[in-house]
Nucleic acid binder design. Structure first.
Lengths: 199, 199, 199, 199
DNA sequence: TATGAATGAGCATTCATTCAT
DNA sequence: AATGAATGAATGCTCATTCAT
């Protein structure tokens, strides 16, 4: 009988093994040859598990996003103020060297989406946006429930996600210091949305 | 001196003559050959007046930005509410077909800045950001002076510019309807920043 | 013995089940994967019954040729004039949509024979040529026996087969209308080879 | 001032310099890199003078055809019998090693035309056919004028061209000996078309 | 007998920029 | 000042076939 391979697992294995070189070379400068060599398989094998190069990058970015999402969920449950939660929500992207490198790939992915976005990419971006909006909604809702925020704050989540995206862009295009910008913004915002009666 | 003026003029002439094909083809798909042909000069001549392809695109985008800036200044002086001013400030980018086409080029430029941004591009982007922040500051300041806005609003301009950039990205990456998003955001924001004592 | 018969049968089964997709995709665009899937077996199994891809195509084209040959034999026995027989002999290839599609495959096969012809292909082509020459010989012989043709006509068969091949090529390379060409040729030829004493 | 090059001449120069390697490697196995190297220019330069690879092959085959055509014209004017002229008309393709090699390329070109023929290729093939038919017409007409041929022979030219194409195919697909086939055919044909009253 | 996972060679084409004239 | 001929690096993807199980 022939060898039966767990396609999903192998797909994932290949993607995992290529994370580092993706982070190192970036999307555009990463070649299929490099991917195949790194994964320890032939070039043809890559195409047994992925549609095309873009498909591999997708798989890896999806993993990054999943990790990021998990971090965000952890924020929700921390025993800290809403203001702090929101600070983390934004700043976690810019925390360490690791996040920084992953963000570079995501930014490149975003740049591709901005000019050559395929239907899949847009759908992927929409799904991401919804996830993050949902998490932010939860943080805000908790804040309101805790009497930390005014009720009006709950309509801001979508715009805050847009702001977050703007941040990702501007850290590279205008050398913006993300944490500074986040701090200043939240400081200003919280004078407006903090509940009047102190908790 | 006369020669220098001529050089500046020719540079500008070349750039102007290529606006339409830039809008039509986009940055990446526009070739130096097309530019030279459209401008009615030889390819080599282009390099007498511009450093490189990027430099020409710069020149043209600068013109677009100047037009956009002028429109923004007009907003300041209109006799409308601050809320309306801010709505225009954001939505003017998405108004007509013309703006839409120019925005596409700007978005492409942004995508390039995000991944291959040269020093010049970053400086250019910083200069743009400052201009727009300044205008927004003025709108907010006027709003405060008119008693339409709470004083705390004046620290928001930087974040709002970031939001604006996020909008430009998201209209393409998540098929966001810009005007909807702007309306919803401003509605929520103004319940927070509007001066308590109604004007 | 039983097993051998089975082997032959399965070989034939696989070939038969792939006739349609061969007609649909053509030789070059038909993949072993498609063949295996259509035949309902694994890719490896294909190679249990066939030497290689070419071998399968052979098997199917052989079937087409057999059908064509049968049609040609029917012509011999029809109660029509020799001229009509010869017209059918040539034009039957171009009769209906079905023949047309099969001819496309045969033409593709011919094109491969012309540039990468293996020993097997050449042998196959020689065998075909002999069959068809034989049939044409019969038609001519009958014509002579019936006093429809001059005796000298009997040396033409080989050249007429060559003409037939040229027709197959030219219908595609110079958009030749096969039936027109056949009619005109036979008209001219028969003024030469028809027996002087009318039957 | 810039260098002005005679585009037509350079185009022709490049094509000429690549004749030998085309004959050596064949169409499919000839790479642009080889062409550029042989022509002593950069790969990009090739594309300044030719649309694509096919375009270069065209240019060279056109030259071959032109040479062949010239040879055919010479036949017309030779002081030999019509039968001999026709023999040469067909057999000249198979005369020497040189013709043989060129014919291989033409056959490959034909095979491509048969399966992937572009509009240009078909037009080219049609033009060739017309040229050759015209020459053959002339030979036949001269034969009739000389009382060597019956008048009816003049309708045969198109079919004879088709026969010639079939010959080109069959020399490779059924290992046909072209000169034998031609001799036998002409022998048979001339018993039919030769004028009754001997010249 | 049946299978299906793995393989890897091979190649046209574009275009920003230079620099000799 | 103006030109335009020349350049050359760089890369994704297909698919017939094999052979371990």
């Amino acid at each position: 009988m022939a060898i039966i391979v767990d396609k999903e697992k192998k797909r994932s294995d290949i993607a995992c093994s290529c994370m580092d070189i993706l982070l190192q070379y970036g999307i555009k400068n990463l070649t299929i040859s490099q991917i195949a060599k790194t994964a320890g398989v032939g070039k043809g094998t890559i195409y047994e598990y992925f549609e095309n190069k873009e498909d591999i990058v997708f798989e890896i970015i999806t993993m990054f996003i999943a990790v990021h999402e998990k971090k965000l969920f952890e924020i929700i449950n921390q025993n800290i103020s809403t203001k702090e939660k929101m600070f983390h929500f934004f700043s976690i992207l810019f925390d360490d060297e690791n996040s920084h490198t992953q963000l570079n790939i995501y930014r490149e992915f975003l740049a591709i989406s901005m000019t050559n976005g395929t239907r899949e990419m847009i759908d992927f971006n929409i799904a991401c946006r919804e996830k993050f909006t949902g998490i932010l909604d939860q943080i805000i809702k908790d804040g309101i429930d805790n009497n930390e925020l005014r009720e009006e704050a709950q309509d801001l989540s979508s715009a805050l996600i847009t702001f977050k995206l703007g941040l990702i862009v501007e850290t590279h295009t205008v050398s913006l210091d993300a944490k500074d910008e986040i701090s200043r913004f939240l400081e200003a915002l919280f004078t407006l949305i903090e509940s009047k009666e102190e908790k």
